[in-house]
């Protein structure tokens, strides 16, 4: 092993170290490959996509144009993306608006049985959505909410709320009690305690939590396809319906799949460091 620098277990400059780095690269490339292949195939013609795998071809935007074209009477890309964007944005904001005060009440000024309440929130995540779908359909139908954005906004908020409360509670728990007490002694109002002491510390956690809500809401398929098939359909439904799964469709499918995946993948790439903190550090402390 090499010199005793801070590197854990295996040294960086030894042969073993180089091999492990190489292995990490290979694993990374393998994990990414299907996504790369999907994006690449989107730029091929159908003939090229439906052939032996090849990296060399003449890229074309034809498939992207085809899948994003207007389709009167059918769900087109613009409509699906608009629906998804609205539903995801509003449900995430709503989810945060409900979860932040709740997390505050479970950590900074904890109520008596905060653990039981937290467990109640989490326990709702164990209930299979499929077991609720029939009543949900009937209730939504009765209230004239089927095929509306509002319905999915409500359901996605409820779907993400337990995870949001859980993660945010742990971020709030990281705020040192002494800081809040010091602010109180200085006579800071509750409002200024929140804005000048608590918020700066938990802001990264709120961002990570919101991002996770965005990912789950953007990708949700089951509720959408059961409840919103004719209007207010979202992107996952569009991917399944934009392409006719007959004859040659691989290039078109790849183009549609790439477009559907892109927003969340980019958001995730930009926020990955925060997510690491948010997912585990927050959840355990």
């Amino acid at each position: 092993m090499s010199q005793g620098n801070t590197g854990p277990v295996v040294g960086q400059r030894s042969l073993g170290g180089y091999l492990l780095s190489l292995l990490a690269w290979i694993v990374g490339v393998m994990f990414f490959f299907p996504v790369f292949w999907m994006a690449l195939s989107g730029f091929k013609t159908e003939a090229e996509a439906n052939a032996d795998p090849s990296l060399i071809f003449d890229p074309t935007l034809e498939q992207f144009r085809t899948v994003t074209a207007d389709k009167p009477g059918l769900l087109d890309a613009a409509e699906a993306f608009a629906n998804s964007a609205w539903i995801v944005a509003i449900s995430t904001v709503l989810c945060m608006a409900l979860a932040i005060p709740a997390a505050y009440a479970l950590s900074i000024k904890p109520i008596g049985k905060w653990k039981d309440v937290l467990f109640f929130f989490i326990s709702t995540k164990f209930l299979p959505i499929v077991a609720a779908i029939l009543p949900l359909w009937l209730i939504a139908d009765y209230l004239d909410l089927r095929n509306t954005r509002l319905l999915l906004i409500i359901l996605y908020t409820a779907m993400n709320l337990p995870l949001a409360v859980w993660m945010l509670r742990s971020f709030f728990a990281e705020v040192p009690k002494e800081l809040i007490e010091a602010a109180q002694i200085d006579g800071a109002s509750l409002r200024s305690q929140i804005t000048s002491v608590i918020m700066p510390i938990v802001a990264p956690g709120i961002a990570a939590t919101a991002l996770l809500c965005v990912i789950f809401a953007w990708n949700e398929f089951y509720l959408a396809i059961q409840l919103n098939t004719s209007d207010a359909s979202t992107v996952p439904i569009w991917v399944n319906s934009a392409v006719e799964f007959q004859g040659q469709f691989l290039a078109q499918l790849s183009a549609a799949a790439t477009l559907a995946t892109l927003p969340v993948v980019i958001a995730g790439w930009l926020a990955q460091k925060r997510m690491i903190r948010g997912l585990a550090m927050g959840a355990i402390k």
């Binding site: 990414f32 999907m38 398929f221 992107v235 991917v239 399944n240 559907a260 993948v265 995730g268 990955q272």
Partner: peptide, 25 residues
Amino acid sequence: FVRTLIITPFLVMPVVAGLVWKNQM
């Protein structure tokens, strides 16, 4: 960069993951 490559599958829409693996892998 390698970490970025590896987290990508988690971000992919499940419906897309299913379709791409089935039809291309």
